[in-house]
């Protein structure tokens, strides 16, 4: 079973080829989305980047850097307001160390909203043009598992993946979105999510997520949102992992569901 990955240089091979439009602050999230929609890139809304103190300043900067450093990401365009705590230019310097294909655009220096959208769209396109997708066989495949506990099926699954030389990371976060952010930082290429019975199926914009249902009433009512039913087998899961890694869309990808949640340690001021 082979996986054809995208060559992303020093960051390794990805199973997707996403460009990230990264708002450095909540104030630039809407402009980032307009640019992302224009160039078919990925972005996300968040409420961070300003009015933060203490460990959060470095923490959010590190989180943004790990997004830029993810193997599924081709290039990054930072959209900055200009006067925020996490400054666009400094963030760009931090991110370039991880991903050389990083540029930034500052709203307050660009002449307003429309001028930023125009310049940012051109910049995102030039990054895409300078980074053509090249496929190479993926060797170091890493799968993340979001599951509430280390149950029998999870143990069997981890055993089966290890036998195929696939590395695994298991995280049990406060919610699937919380787990996904932690798994992103571990640079997993693909995520298997076993949400608890009260949480819906969901996705993560940079990483394909395969959702596996439980027997809960909620999951049974929304079975169409899950890639696999509760009674699925390890063999079916492994088969789907390879199909998705080779480009098949997950249901969360088709629905474009799920957000990137940036973890926060302290609070806003």
């Amino acid at each position: 079973m082979k996986i054809e990955g995208f060559d992303h240089g020093s960051r390794g091979l990805g199973v997707r080829n996403y460009q990230l439009i990264l708002p450095s602050v909540v104030c630039s999230t809407h402009i980032s989305r307009r640019i992302a929609n224009a160039v078919n890139a990925v972005t996300f809304s968040h409420q961070h980047g300003c009015g933060i103190i203490g460990a959060d300043v470095a923490g959010i900067g590190d989180f943004f850097a790990s997004l830029a450093d993810h193997p599924n990401v081709s290039s990054v365009l930072i959209i900055s307001l200009g006067c925020e705590t996490i400054q666009g230019q400094e963030l760009a310097e931090k991110l370039v160390a991880k991903n050389v294909s990083t540029k930034y655009q500052i709203i307050q220096d660009s002449g307003g909203v429309e001028a930023t959208v125009t310049a940012g769209t051109a910049s995102a396109r030039s990054l895409q043009d300078s980074y053509p997708a090249k496929r190479i066989q993926l060797k170091d495949f890493r799968v993340g598992i979001d599951a509430p506990s280390n149950s029998a099926i999870i143990r069997d699954l981890i055993g089966a993946l290890r036998a195929l030389n696939i590395q695994t990371d298991l995280v049990s976060g406060k919610s699937p979105a919380d787990s996904f952010s932690h798994l992103m930082e571990k640079k997993v290429h693909l995520i298997l999510s076993f949400p608890t019975g009260d949480q819906p199926a969901s996705g993560f914009p940079l990483i394909p997520v395969i959702n596996i249902a439980s027997e809960s009433a909620l999951h049974q009512a929304i079975s169409a949102d899950f890639d696999l039913p509760a009674e699925t087998t390890v063999v079916n899961i492994v088969k789907l992992i390879f199909e998705v890694a080779n480009g098949q869309e997950t249901i969360a990808e088709t629905n474009k569901s799920g957000e990137i949640l940036a973890p926060r340690l302290v609070r806003s001021t």
Partner: peptide, 25 residues
């Protein structure tokens, strides 16, 4: 929070509704 993307999709498909998104799960 997992329904944020659905709310945004409704905004985009509708004739002028406004949606917000947030991170409470």
């Amino acid at each position: 929070s997992a329904l944020s993307s659905s709310a945004r999709a409704i905004e985009e498909a509708s004739q002028g509704a406004v949606a917000i998104t947030h991170d409470w799960s």
